[in-house]
Design a protein around this nucleic acid. Sequence first.
DNA 1: CTAATCTGCAACCTGGAGGTTGCGTAAATG
DNA 2: CATTTACGCAACCTCCAGGTTGCAGATTAG
Lengths: 115, 115
Amino acid sequence: MSRAVRSSLAVRRQAHAPLFAALGDETRLSLVAKLCGGQPRSISQLTEGSKLTRQAITKHLRVLEDAEIVHSVRTGRESLFKFDPEPIVEIKKYLDLISEQWDQTLSRLKSFVEE
Amino acid sequence: MSRAVRSSLAVRRQAHAPLFAALGDETRLSLVAKLCGGQPRSISQLTEGSKLTRQAITKHLRVLEDAEIVHSVRTGRESLFKFDPEPIVEIKKYLDLISEQWDQTLSRLKSFVEE
DNA sequence: CTAATCTGCAACCTGGAGGTTGCGTAAATG
DNA sequence: CATTTACGCAACCTCCAGGTTGCAGATTAG
């Protein structure tokens, strides 16, 4: 493991854990799935069809908003939530670092066995 | 949003939420970072340098093991934990579905504006 | 054999996540 | 203007995640 990769994993850990946590809930994944379709939706719309209360959905949306996976804009009496892809990209980069580190290990192991 | 993509997001949601949740903790991300280096380590080794108790680390390892991000093998008096890359790959695929859905939206929006 | 090491199990504690209900207010509707 | 709709705030509840301590058993070391 190179020092560069290890430090990348360390430095970004604190920043990324809350992102994973925000996605670590079935209800919130459902909200993300609805919103990444592109069309901004109000809280009431997002509550439709759910077994949960509007307030519960609101709390989940706030969690996603804190993680910046979603942004809200108040328009009139309703607040519209829209998807922001940037944190998803960031998380994928982090996972790529892990995979990369693992692949390097495998290739080292392979060359070791081949000697 | 095509029906195929939407159903993929729905079907896999229940399976993926626990995976994200398992990664949604700084301590566990730290453990993953150590183990994806390739070398299997014992609980005591993984506890070294941490401010937490061995028992706390053990609990975190069990969470990672339930998510199959890590596997343990008891050898003698110590149990060795090793990294398993498969769930990480699975998570990346899921994030790719979300990104793909978002990109499709953008391209539709773009062609709409260009008309 | 004895002592040190590594672990598992169980009890216990605490804070916060996830959920509900109730109420008040602003905005759209008719 | 009266009513419905959409929302925010606050209090409250329950449960479990995350952490600790204590103890006992198995394994290794000297």
